[in-house]
Design a protein around this nucleic acid. Structure first.
Length: 803
DNA sequence: AACACGTCGGTTTTT
DNA sequence: CCGACGTGTT
């Protein structure tokens, strides 16, 4: 390895701009890199690592790079190995959960976990909680399992165990109790949920000085991707790894590089804390904040929109994207009369783009705020015969048949896993009914053991059936002792009766296929992991260098941890214990739910939520439904921080587009089976006119949010004047939303007049309060007794006069 | 044990 | 309007 060899590193640094170069070649120490959208963030991260290695400032074993998603981790690894002919295996590159899992496997004894501990995904966690609730006779109306799950997860992600939670009301106390019981249940069964992986790992580092010291020494270079999305616990975990805090100051000799963009923080709802960025600067004594503002993705009209929009947020770290590309096309804005018309227009526009060769289908994305919006768009695309692909939905390892198969496999590994036991004890059906299981659960609880252990105590026919199930599992375990992973799974599918069950099911063909795919996935997993069989992790002192050829392929996850057992370290002697291929595969299945198995449509229009689009880019982006209460979403409007997150979301959407951006909104929209008449999103009004091209008259219709807002202020003031002394006055939304009375009188082609009684299919009978506009833009303000007052577009609303 | 019916709720999502 | 889920029926 060349050391401090500038010529050698020169090609690596060749195509970097000044900001990027500065970030890549930062001297050791903590730094924050504010990386704007499309500014080459991943490139900087990977080049930084490559540069550290190439210049001999770091050995592979000294590097820890952490991301949120497996996708990001894989991309980083891929780009790194393309850059350097180096062995990546000593490096710790992975997700927070993946890395924590690795640490916990290596030190499972220290944290009191069995070597075979299994990971619960969200579904598993929820069913474990439901089971717990039934067991303890919890009123599921009062304490919905879903709510309990989020209570538990939120506290774990805040670093809190049951005893750390202050109990205010009896309700909270009950939840704390259940959290504690849930913990005990998990512990007894040898399972951990996602949040537990992080918390347990955090506690491992916190409570074991030599372990912590060891990793602190080892990971001299820590790099964090998407730092704005870290939660409290992840940040605390990073701090543990970075160094000890003495009198409030972090004594960290190493280097933590946090890369993120506060303007793209869109996951507060799941615990992300942008505040970690400011905290990081303060607590790590960061002196270097580097901004990557040069954008390599979009034309300037698009960036102008992004910059102007995000400018409306308060308390930003401050950043302005710039580009050397020209203005490009203007950003198109269009108002549609209905959501259906919006979708049809969008499809026509897409067809144009494709036919003129402007863009490939796969380079066109349709983004929306909520999944429900995809329905109309999908049907329009479908009728037009345009191939499309919808992101999201079930992933491979989340499919029911796969989860069933995995449950059998988990029982082979860990018979105590009651969640898995219950999932498959009677699937396929074995005549073990709910009554029997209730009985079994009672017995198990009384004995304080697992269901598996209690099977023998169930009398009669039911007991015999249960015993047969247990015998099946035990037999299977025995029969597969010497088998390869693929064989184990194939045998399990057969012996469990799963295969037979789906074969006899008239529409079980897909599921059968998926089960076959599971065998394939396992085989390719083994092959892939096998590459790591002779991997050596080089500790910083490079004392160990001998390949550990004796390890089983699947122990790859451990091998980097092994050399850490430096002399004097109270690390389990058994970290040399290899994980079986099966155990490794089960972990893999839990931590990586697999690809969204969408249609393999090669060249298809891409449909997804704005959230799902983060990190992606497309030549052409359509963003529909830009309406108040949809985007920004109603539920986010309650507090200013919610609105700001919506704005960041809009910012993310805008910055996905390379060449063309289309924004649209509709005068009416079907939602939850009700037609709504929204007004256009305030976000549209926050964009610079100069960068826009309105495809429909901008002032047509209801006017902007600002206008309504201004009117609201006036009208509330007016109402207050009028209703002075009337304490019961509350500004109703409908009142607030009424525009001023029309100054001009229009020709009433629609035949409506103020004061008239009308009938509407949905809202029933109502009275016309006001009419505004003419022709296609005509709207009436109508008071309905049941639904309050509504502004209806007369071109759209079906109204009939009532005598 | 499979099916039918009624109720309820309904942003965003990764691990 | 539409899907998930839970309860009740055959």
């Amino acid at each position: 390895m060349p050391s401090h060899d500038l010529p050698a590193s020169a090609p690596l640094l060749q195509h970097l701009n000044a900001e990027q170069l500065a970030a890549v070649t930062l001297p050791a120490g903590h730094a924050l890199i504010l990386a704007g959208a499309g500014s080459g963030k991943t490139r900087v991260l990977t080049t930084r690592i490559a540069w550290l290695l190439q210049t001999g400032q770091a050995a592979p074993g000294g590097i820890l790079a952490v991301t949120f998603t497996n996708k990001a981790a894989k991309e980083m690894s891929a780009r790194l190995s393309a850059m350097l002919p180096l062995n990546l295996r000593g490096m710790w590159i992975g997700t927070f959960h993946g890395l924590c899992n690795r640490l916990l496997r290596a030190h499972h004894r220290l944290v009191g976990l069995p070597a075979t501990f299994q990971i619960l995904d969200m579904q598993d966690q929820l069913s474990a909680i439901k089971r717990l609730c039934k067991q303890y006779g919890v009123d599921e109306e009062r304490y919905p399992p879903k709510q309990l799950a989020s209570f538990i997860n939120a506290h774990k992600e805040d670093g809190k165990r049951p005893r750390d939670i202050p109990m205010r009301d009896p309700d909270t106390q009950k939840k704390i109790e259940l959290y504690q019981l849930y913990e005990q249940q998990c512990q007894r069964e040898g399972v951990v949920d996602f949040a537990e992986l992080l918390l347990r790992c955090h506690e491992l580092l916190r409570d074991n000085d030599p372990v912590r010291a060891h990793y602190q020494r080892r990971f001299a270079h820590i790099l964090v991707d998407e730092f704005q999305d870290t939660n409290r616990l992840q940040y605390a975990w990073l701090k543990q790894l970075a160094g000890d805090t003495v009198e409030g100051r972090l004594m960290a000799p190493g280097s933590v590089i946090a890369v993120g963009d506060d303007d793209q923080s869109i996951y507060a709802f799941r615990g992300a804390r942008v505040g970690n960025m400011q905290d990081f600067v303060r607590e790590f004594g960061v002196r270097q904040v580097i901004k990557l503002e040069q954008n390599y993705r979009s034309y300037s009209n698009i960036l102008d929109c992004a910059n102007a929009l995000i400018e409306h947020n308060q308390g930003r770290l401050g950043k302005n994207l710039r580009t050397q590309q020209g203005p490009g096309e203007p950003v198109r804005v269009r108002e549609a009369p209905t959501d259906l018309a919006e979708a049809q227009w969008l499809v026509e526009e897409i067809q144009n783009l494709v036919q003129t060769g402007e863009a490939a289908r796969s380079q066109i994305a349709v983004l929306y705020r909520s999944n429900a919006q995809s329905r109309v768009i999908e049907s329009a695309l479908f009728s037009a015969g345009l191939p499309y692909r919808v992101y999201g939905g079930l992933r491979f390892f989340e499919r029911a048949e796969i989860k069933h198969a995995l449950a059998y496999l988990r029982l082979l590994e860990n018979p105590q896993d009651d969640t898995s036991f219950l999932r498959v004890v009677n699937f396929p059906a074995r005549g073990i009914g709910a009554r029997t299981l209730e009985q079994l659960q009672d017995l198990a609880r009384a004995a304080g053991g697992s269901l598996h252990a209690a099977v023998g105590s169930v009398p009669g026919k039911a007991g015999a059936n249960l015993a047969a199930f247990v015998a099946l599992i035990d037999q299977l375990r025995q029969d597969t002792q010497q088998a390869h992973l693929g064989q184990i799974i194939a045998k399990t599918l057969q012996a469990s009766g799963l295969q037979a069950h789906y074969r006899s099911d008239k529409d079980g063909a897909d599921r059968l296929e998926n089960l076959d795919e599971l065998v394939n996935a396992a085989e390719s997993f083994v092959t892939q992991e096998g590459f790591g069989r002779d991997a050596v992790a080089l500790p910083l002192d490079e004392q160990r260098s001998a390949p550990r050829l004796t390890q089983s392929p699947a122990s790859q996850g451990l091998d980097s941890a092994l050399p850490l057992a430096a002399p004097g370290l109270p690390i389990d002697q058994d970290t040399g214990e290899t994980q079986s291929p099966l155990a490794a595969f089960l972990t893999h299945a839990a931590l990586e739910a697999g690809d969204h198995q969408a249609q393999a449509g090669q060249d298809a229009v891409q449909l997804m939520t704005v959230h799902a689009s983060k990190g992606l880019e497309f030549d052409c982006v359509f963003l529909g439904g830009l309406e108040e209460e949809l985007f920004p979403h109603q539920n986010a409007l309650a507090d200013p921080s919610g609105l700001e997150e919506e704005r960041r979301l809009m910012y993310v959407a805008i910055t996905r587009a390379r060449k063309r951006l289309y924004l649209s909104f509709s005068q009416s929209r079907m939602l939850h089976g009700q037609t709504r008449y929204p007004i256009r999103s305030r976000f549209i009004d926050e964009l610079p006119e100069a960068a826009l091209k309105w495809l429909t008259p901008p002032q047509g219709g209801f006017g902007s949010f600002q206008e309504l807002n201004q009117f609201a202020i006036n009208s509330i003031a007016a109402s207050h004047r009028q209703t002075r002394g009337n304490s019961s006055f509350t500004p109703q939304k409908e009142v607030v939303a009424s525009p001023p009375l029309p100054a001009r009188k229009s020709q009433p082609e629609h035949g409506l007049r103020v004061g008239m009684a009308v009938f509407h299919n949905k809202f029933g009978e109502g009275r016309v309060l006001a009419i505004e506009g003419a022709g296609a833009d005509a709207r009436a303000h109508i008071q309905f007794p049941r639904h309050g007052s509504k502004w209806l577009a007369l071109a759209v609303a079906k109204l009939t006069q009532v005598e």
